[in-house]
Amino acid sequence: MSKIPFAHTPENVFRLVGRKTIAFFEDVGGLAVMIKEMLWGLPKAVTRFHLIIEQMHAMGVNSLPLVALVSIFTGAVTAVQAVYQISDYVPIRYLGTMVGKAVMIELAPVLTALVVAGRVGAGIAAELGTMKVTEQIDALQTLALDPVEYLVTPRFIAGVLMLPILTVFADAIAVAGGMGISAATLHVPPHTFINGMRSFFKSMDLFSGLFKAFVFGGIISIIGCYQGFKTYGGAEGVGRSTTKAVVLASVLILISDYIVATILFG
């Protein structure tokens, strides 16, 4: 006879809550230890510059087409919806102001991070997870190499450097997308759009977005590496770690977005 789903006895519920709580604190502790070891590995990482460049290429250059595609539509949809929202009470010449601020402060950093979490975070977890289950991480240790120093630190450095750079591209492409659609369908010429953007631009708009991207880059690489290192159980385990890495990184990106926004603008 099949079991009835969710038919937990009180004892099972307590056991489940207990197990989840222990797993949560194990993860928090494990992450803290890995971050500490990763930071200790920073001086050594300079001597392995080629590993950082490899990771920067994988995270940044290879993500650019996808980020560009997402950004151009983000800019376009922001412009279209901004016109719908503001046309009754704000002059249309300020469309560039709205699009520019929305893109630089929030949309470009967050959407770029979510796209990179899906593409790169999953890739890191799958690669390191496969290395774990095929004993390649053990093999690194037998060669007297610290896996955190060798695998995590270069990915972390690449993450915190490349996310802001990708976000700069995303800012430019999204603004271009918004400006293009404004000119083509909303009857707002490019010079009006740019003037609107320039008249209320603050450097804080750009730098707050880049700071967020820096934080998100760290989150994506650390979570991907941690889930990869925790992998067990063959191909099924690699799939599980990959999914967890994307979900956890996405959730943490949104939570940290709120925290950073509160610190910078609160």
Partner: peptide, 21 residues
Amino acid sequence: QFNKLRQKFGMLFQAAALFDS
């Protein structure tokens, strides 16, 4: 301390565990 010790050792793994990349 293990890293110093491990330089005295070599290990052949069951499935070789070569680095794919």
